[in-house]
Design a protein around this nucleic acid. Structure first.
Lengths: 136, 136
DNA sequence: TAAAAACCTTACCTGTGGGGTAAGGTCAAG
DNA sequence: CTTGACCTTACCCCACAGGTAAGGTTTTTA
């Protein structure tokens, strides 16, 4: 009859978030404090696990914990406007774009250096030379 | 005559690494302990500053502090083979590639969700719906 | 020449998002 | 009733940086 109840290990498996992180999310206030069993074990219900899954999906999309906190508020707020969510997501895409640009710059520069390096037993190396340059 | 000497603030400006991080790099063993003035101020010479600049350039290329430690060893080892450096750099490119893929996956998925969201004052929102889905 | 500003020192806390370990309580199966 | 698997809290650690505080030194300025 109460098949809807999970302890933290079961909730971890069901949500793909480690017990460790579930406790941390609770401690940091991202999720509400779990109710406890007589022996002080955390007890979760299906709704709680859905929230954890929501968090997991958002983390997989690269949202920060802070952003997820906002998303959870919007999620549980039936009066939210979808534009609020959309702007949060759009902002996050801009951040992803920025990181992508940085990584691409690094990669192309490094690829150029690697292609200039003969990579044999000789000690002279354009990669180290470039890193040692005083000017870029 | 000793125009080649810098205190930590000057070394920071010359290398574009904050005083803070210079101290930390020393503490962590990435760079040797600086010599000290009579009043216990750290003193750097041109060679030290070149090492800091080397580190800065490598950080800008996304190398980890650990990798930079290896690069510094190779840099100061006149008997190194360029292949060692090249393989370290190549390995790092693979890591950059992996991160790029992850970020691209996030971005395209999120872009798809955003394009599905009408983003007006109505509460229904495909982004939240997707995050709340039990299956992906 | 004395005060003030600018710099240095160490030591500690913050964030971000995790991982690990230890010491002890609880539960279920054998 | 013991053993193993689970739970609890309380710490430590990683990378990589920023901030702040309290105190000493050096340089500039009035």
């Amino acid at each position: 009859m109460q098949s809807d109840l999970y302890n933290i290990g079961e909730a971890a498996i069901a949500s793909c978030i480690s017990s460790k992180m579930i406790r941390r999310y609770e401690e940091s206030g991202l999720i509400p404090k779990a109710s406890r069993s007589l022996s002080d074990y955390r007890v979760y219900n299906g709704k709680n696990v859905n929230m954890l899954r929501f968090i997991k999906h958002a983390r997989d999309l690269g949202f920060s914990v802070k952003q997820i906190s906002s998303l959870l508020n919007l999620w549980t707020d039936q009066a939210r406007s979808s534009s609020e969510v959309k702007s949060l997501a759009t902002e996050h895409i801009l951040l992803l774009d920025q990181k992508l640009k940085e990584l691409n710059t690094m990669k192309s520069e490094l690829t150029r250096l690697v292609s200039c390096c003969h990579g044999d037993e000789r000690p002279d190396c354009p990669i180290l030379d470039s890193l040692a340059q005083n000017e870029i």
